[in-house]
Write a protein that binds this DNA or RNA. Structure first.
Lengths: 233, 233
DNA sequence: AAAACTAATTGATTTAAATTAATTATGAAA
DNA sequence: TTTCATAATTAATTTAAATCAATTAGTTTT
């Protein structure tokens, strides 16, 4: 039985599908996190967090899907992650310049839970397990960004697109076949290439029998070959 | 009066030029950090930390200069930072997979202080100020990596090289004119381009009167123009 | 000082990928 | 259904930057 009222959590203490990190917290600490917490629904396409604005909250999706991306030069975006429920984000600006360093926007209808940064800070200081877990979380993100730096600067297009496909299959849809919630343009923004090049390479993969394409749905037929293309650049 | 014996610190408690982060620690905590701590001298070119090996220590330079870099595909490196004394590094693998995710090697004769990761962890858990400072440190690095991602993927060569020059001038040598401790190849590894292209663009900057070149020494003559090239890509 | 490396420069050529330009699907709204 | 808008595909052209190939300048070593 869900502790929800019209899809809204009542409080963190009794929220039964919150971020795993919250399992480290005591009832007292959950109460702190819950104070001032609020949940907002977003339509597909709406901005959840805008790069450059004041970073007042830690955020987690409660349902739906979102893209986390850097707004670069001349309106060119770089998508870093496709976010699923219970991934904490808002991070890098917290405790530093208090600005969001990336934008996040909904790629399906979605809702998100906003927790006051100051409350997170307070709990972080009182609970070493939570602090360590957050540091772990931050370190994991750093590692992922290192991998991304190498992928984006040293691999050519087939390698970069292979990385995007493997990411979508392994981390987002958890399946060899999936129906995209993003456009070709956005696939390009994941692998730093134009939409035209994205189409080209996808078709190339298809003609080589590595994937099956059918509009918005993709099936990976030769996982081993795709992985090989990924590692060899 | 220096508390040193042949350039080696005796202990963290009386080390008078340690990392600023250590100022947050009590005598008791410094004692923990000091336990098992050791200092090693490196010749120019020697490896201090090797990507992929077991991350057992947090490290800080005590003197000299080092480059922190990712070892990518086909022996191609990407230099992320030029490290000066008292910058803590070793980070991202700690508390996660316990592997170093980058290599660090000396670009002058240098020495480094190695602190056991387990001791850092222990102090981190006992001292919220230190934990918060470490998280801040980690977040700052993340932001820097976001900037780097945009620079390296969206700017063309002049913009990327401008970024490298501004970094060297502002963060490493703290002066408009400096004598490089790195080669053209390494400048290229900072801005993801070949040594030939590095030379070419440097000469181009010189002929435009933006910089003065004299072998290993560089003087930035038109800082505003260089900054403009950096932002416009 | 001569020899042997290593690093830096310069130019010619090739190549990966962007840009430009049309065309074709697909989906939403009237 | 027709219209309109957005997304995807395809091909031709251009461009940024790598590669290849010498040459020149600096350092070490002998």
């Amino acid at each position: 039985m869900l502790n929800r009222k019209s899809d809204q959590c009542i409080s963190c203490e009794i929220c039964n599908d919150r971020s795993p990190l919250f399992n480290l917290l005591s009832q007292e600490e959950l109460k702190i996190m819950n104070a001032g917490r609020f949940e907002v629904s977003f339509n597909n396409g709406e901005t959840i967090v805008k790069q450059g604005t004041s970073a007042t909250h830690m955020i987690t999706l409660t349902h739906g899907m979102a893209k986390l991306f850097l707004e670069g030069i001349d309106k060119r975006n770089l998508i870093l992650d496709i976010i699923l429920p219970w991934t904490l984000f808002g991070g890098p600006g917290l405790f530093t310049d208090m600005r969001y360093h990336y934008s996040v926007s909904a790629i399906t209808d979605a809702s998100a839970c906003f927790i006051a940064a100051e409350n997170v800070r307070q709990v972080l200081r009182s609970n070493p397990d939570f602090a360590e877990a957050m540091l772990k979380h931050c370190n994991k993100n750093s590692s992922a960004n290192f991998d991304r730096l190498i992928s984006l600067t040293q691999k050519q297009m087939p390698g970069r697109l292979a990385d995007a496909l493997l990411y979508l299959s392994g981390k987002v849809f958890h399946s060899k076949s999936f129906t995209l919630t993003i456009t070709r343009l956005e696939m390009g923004e994941m692998s730093n290439m134009t939409k035209e090049s994205t189409t080209r390479i996808l078709k190339e993969f298809e003609s080589e029998g590595i994937i099956r394409l059918d509009g918005k749905s993709i099936e990976i037929l030769k996982m081993d070959v795709l992985k090989d293309i990924s590692v060899r650049g």
